[in-house]
Design a protein around this nucleic acid. Structure first.
Lengths: 241, 241
DNA sequence: ATTGAAATTCAACATGTGTTGAAATGTCAA
DNA sequence: TTGACATTTCAACACATGTTGAATTTCAAT
């Protein structure tokens, strides 16, 4: 079930080698890709807000203003659509994080970066202004938060799309704290990932609880609080006892 | 829609004042409550593992080995069943946490308790051996983790069942750090709640990522790591800048 | 213009959904 | 035993679900 990009699935019985057609806009109609993307956009919103089982293809089609059958045609199945939504922005996010990590490594070279800078490299890209103001990215992050906490998806999906990058981060953490047993670094990462997830879940719980004093949906404030909190946690937990 | 306890909903048109019948085992059959409880147990497991929309009343009935219609009869609707599952153990958990909080307040009186002890009073009851080894409570905590991160339920449900207790905790935190702006305390609580949620989500993600080095489903280890991590986060974030 | 493949629409399928009457069964007080 | 009520079963409802086959349209290359 490798992902077919750029052509429908139901029709792709043979998947011919395309006979030297220019890649750029191969079978490009007026809005050839527009409908497919609208489906992804709509699915992104709905999956983020209601989870996999809370969404129906009919609601997706309605929000995207396309025919119901089109989702199945382009993505094969509901699960295929879900994965496609996750895949679409994963690479970009991974690239941004990797760039941030390498930048902070360069700044500290030849020593390992301070823990706070590694934490920042991991968190900041998800709060960067250009992404944080893009509704599409917002919904994507909300979806990741949902998946990360989902009992039956957390393992598979997160690993599938983000493992290589996270492993890279773990290596830098280990290099920054060479005397710390890796277990404690993993635990710290777990708690950092938790803070990220609940924040992007976009609950209004804390607004209610605090009587309006804070709103965790304010991402600018969130990252400002999260970095010191998480860094302090890392540092205490990773002190060699 | 007040919750009717001890008698079916579909039948309760009049809800008469019971005419002096002994409360203890009023219409008690051989296993009068047994089926109702079995439904709650089954629903608890399935809702925790698959969320509200991922569960069907038929699967609940099958797991509980009762007739399909019984769930609707006893709880009125699927949503009613869901709320009943949440309600069942909420009071006990709240009592345990309150007891832990009051104990640590007494130990420190007349001063406010140290932050770490307040954190411990909040976390420890969910990891206490007698609950952590009871499968029922495990599923319940897993369900809470799901609800807390659910975009569309986090606000309502959490507030409904746990707000008074959490407000009580917030007051003690404020008393322990009188010079800290309440906003930072709320943020810290948010991150603590996140660590709790992701841990009880019982994902195998960290086991995969760490190559088996840690497993966040080991609750005994989890609380041991969580308390220092969260405490350190609190203390740094709540330093008056 | 013709062709051929991709994209889109339409209608339907088989199955699953929560919920509800009506009948049957159980339970205990009078 | 009888009567009254709670509980349980059975069957069905009205509707929603993901998916699919066939027909239609779109559109670039011939």
């Amino acid at each position: 079930m490798s992902v077919e990009i750029g052509c429908g699935i139901r029709h792709a019985v043979a998947a011919k080698p395309q006979m030297g057609v220019p890649m750029a806009l191969k079978p490009a109609g007026k809005d050839q890709q527009r409908r497919k993307d609208r489906i992804l956009d709509a699915a992104e919103i709905l999956f983020a807000k209601h989870g996999f089982d809370g969404v129906t293809l009919r609601k997706v089609a309605a929000l995207a203003e396309v025919d119901l059958a089109l989702a199945s045609y382009h993505f094969g199945s509901k699960q295929g659509l879900f994965d496609a939504v996750l895949l679409r922005r994963a690479e970009v996010l991974n690239e941004r994080r990797l760039a941030a990590l390498e930048a902070c490594e360069r700044a500290a070279a030849p020593k390992a970066p301070p823990v706070e800078e590694i934490v920042r490299a991991f968190l900041a890209p998800m709060f960067a202004a250009d992404l944080a103001r893009d509704p599409g990215w917002q919904h994507y992050f909300e979806l990741i938060a949902y998946v990360n906490n989902a009992h039956d998806m957390g393992g598979r999906v997160m690993t599938q799309f983000f493992n290589p990058l996270v492993v890279r981060f773990m290596d830098v953490f280990k290099r920054a704290m060479p005397d710390t047993p890796p277990e404690q670094i993993y635990w710290s990462y777990h708690f950092m990932s938790a803070a990220l997830s609940l924040t992007f879940a976009q609950t209004e719980r804390m607004k209610i609880l605090s009587g309006g004093a804070i709103d965790t949906r304010d991402l600018e404030a969130a990252v400002e609080q999260m970095i010191p909190f998480v860094t302090a946690g890392f540092e205490r937990l990773c002190k060699t006892a």
